[in-house]
């Protein structure tokens, strides 16, 4: 049995309603530390809402959330590096300007790490954000999340709508930078595809409910299928 203190995220009976839609219908989850979790489900399954509730950007209508034993809020926010799906970058800034601007908000910003990542993601400081391709902007967004020394990293749809080579860079960047001794990561995606090797554990969200949660390798053994195949079977 897992120790309570080993959990990065503990969620019980989480509910969230939007006008005309029930986004989360009683989510129960316990996510062990030191792992990369895949939050999988089609569009509209509640992935983004769930992540926003963890960060404190959405107010739940019921249920309990603990991030490293703390409720969402100012304190818990410091523990979380959140990469939203929306492109929030200022187009008139340069890449370096974006890094410097973001660095100003966080005490755990690691300038050296940001520089390494910039190099790895094949971006240049003097480039204008407005002139970057979609894939390049996705890579820049990822740098902003990974350059922080936060124990919980949440990436909302980091692979959506980008070219395969950017996707591959992002996967490798995550693998190289992830520190399992001190970090936990949740990555949401609606297209499992070639990214499933990233995940230690997976959570299938279906219409605001947890359909399945488990260790990726165990699921492959039990089903004799890839996570992607199981995903396709569940969400046809």
């Amino acid at each position: 049995m897992m120790n309570y203190a080993d959990q990065a995220v503990f969620v019980e009976g989480l509910r969230k309603r939007y006008p005309g839609a029930e986004a989360l219908r009683g989510i129960n989850l316990q996510l062990e530390r030191g792992q990369i979790w895949g939050l999988l489900g089609p569009n509209g399954s509640g992935k983004s809402t769930f992540l926003k509730c963890l960060v404190g950007l959405a107010q739940p209508d019921g249920g309990l959330i603990k991030i490293y034993n703390q409720e969402p809020g100012r304190q818990a926010r410091k523990l979380i590096a959140f990469m939203p799906e929306l492109d929030h970058l200022y187009r008139w800034m340069t890449v370096q300007g974006t890094l410097d601007f973001t660095a100003g908000f966080y005490q755990d910003w690691q300038a050296g790490r940001a520089e390494e990542l910039l190099d790895f993601m094949r971006l240049k400081g003097e480039q204008k954000v407005g002139a970057l391709s979609r894939g390049m902007r996705a890579r820049l967004k990822l740098i902003l999340a990974l350059a922080r020394k936060a124990p919980l990293i949440l990436l909302d749809e980091p692979f959506s709508g980008i070219d395969p080579s950017s996707r591959e860079r992002i996967v490798e960047g995550i693998i190289r930078q992830f520190k399992s001794e001190e970090q936990t990561m949740i990555i949401s995606t609606h297209a499992v595809g070639s990214t499933e090797q990233l995940f230690d554990g997976v959570i299938f969200l279906d219409q605001g409910e947890v359909y399945l949660q488990g260790n990726a390798e165990d699921l492959r053994t039990e089903h004799g299928q890839s996570i992607n195949d199981i995903f396709k079977e569940v969400f046809v």
Binding site: Q35, R176, E217
Partner: peptide, 17 residues
């Protein structure tokens, strides 16, 4: 472990196992 994880593009926990 880290080198192999990066090369295979596989989670480092998997390589560790």
């Amino acid at each position: 472990q880290r080198e192999l994880a990066a090369e295979l593009k596989v989670n480092v926990n998997t390589v560790q196992r």
